[in-house]
Design a protein around this nucleic acid. Structure first.
Length: 291
DNA sequence: GTGTTTGTTAGAGC
DNA sequence: AGCTCTAACAAACA
């Protein structure tokens, strides 16, 4: 039984949704050779179209991955004319941040692009990677130095090195409200509004708890909850990006997100909606006691 | 007009 | 001084 979400409550891409995109669209890209770049909304692309095309043209995709909420597309350093400057022979990375409404599509170059497509990367084989973004908040960055962007991100919550101790060391030295802290991409990479609420409910922690007042046991619970929430999201192919990935079903399994006034799946109490840091926040008042 | 969404930034406050 | 928080902003749409 799918819950219906209003348009403005549709899940925005967070770590599990980006991971799903990387595993589906991304898996189709390695080996393709970039030919041309099109962009009709200057703010979407950095650097501008001509320079981006000069940087990418003739390069082959070597790998597609994810860092936090960024799609990371790596290109080789070969296939460059000898006359090109030395920096052109370094590898290039294209970073895509979907922000609120971005989607990545792989379509034939001769098919008409949807009206929300503002960036296209045409491959030599006649296909195009298209970035559709109704709200134009998304960003495509072509750079020799992806670390300048990715270096600011906190650890990957699903990596083996990310232990409960690592989480505790990171957040307990801060004196912040728990939810805004977990949303901070410098603290932890990849969580957004949905998975923070889901993680806090799983952990039985109120979003207004102070990070420096969490006990060891609570940090352990939080760590397990974050990983479980993200892993379930990935297992279900993310939450409804319906028109792109109809198989994404995570939205049917939200425990609190978007479920105001509905019963808590654990105790039956009515889920509450509050606002924390100007963000809609869903919680169970019984399972997540106020600080 | 209102509310909603992400991430960045400027500025206020403690 | 340094950390934390808030407001504003980008843009679209029902």
């Amino acid at each position: 039984m799918a819950i219906s979400l209003r348009w403005c409550e549709r899940p925005m891409p967070e770590l599990p949704e980006v991971e799903t995109i990387v595993r589906t669209v991304g898996a189709e890209l390695p080996g393709r050779i970039a030919a041309r770049v099109f962009c009709d909304w200057p703010a979407t692309l950095r650097p501008a179209v001509r320079k981006a095309e000069a940087l990418l043209g003739g390069r082959r995709v070597t790998a597609v991955g994810r860092r936090g909420k960024y799609v990371v597309i790596r290109f080789d350093d070969a296939a460059c004319a000898p006359s090109r400057p030395r920096h052109a022979r370094e590898s290039i990375t294209m970073l895509v941040h979907l922000r609120m409404s971005g989607r990545l599509l792989l379509e034939p170059a001769d098919s008409p692009p949807h009206r929300f497509v503002h960036f296209r990367l045409r491959w030599k084989d006649g296909s195009e990677l298209r970035f559709s973004d109704a709200r134009k908040f998304g960003r495509v960055i072509v750079t020799h130095r992806p670390e300048e962007v990715l270096g600011a991100l906190g650890p990957e919550p699903l990596e083996a090195e990310f232990s409960a101790d690592a989480l505790g060391a990171r957040i307990r030295r801060l004196r912040r409200r728990l939810k805004p802290c977990l949303l901070d991409q410098r603290v932890l990479a990849g969580l957004g509004n949905i998975y923070v609420d889901e993680s806090l409910h799983r952990a039985g922690l109120h979003p207004l708890r102070r990070t420096d007042r969490l006990s060891d046991a609570e940090v352990v619970r939080l760590h397990a909850a974050i990983r479980a929430a993200l892993q379930e999201g990935i297992r279900r192919n993310g939450a409804s990006i319906d028109w792109v990935y109809p198989e994404g079903r995570m939205q049917d399994y939200f425990r609190v997100y978007g479920r105001a006034d509905q019963p808590c799946c654990r105790c039956g109490a009515a889920v509450r909606r509050i606002v924390v840091g100007q963000r809609a926040t869903y919680l169970c008042p019984d399972c997540q006691p106020r600080p």
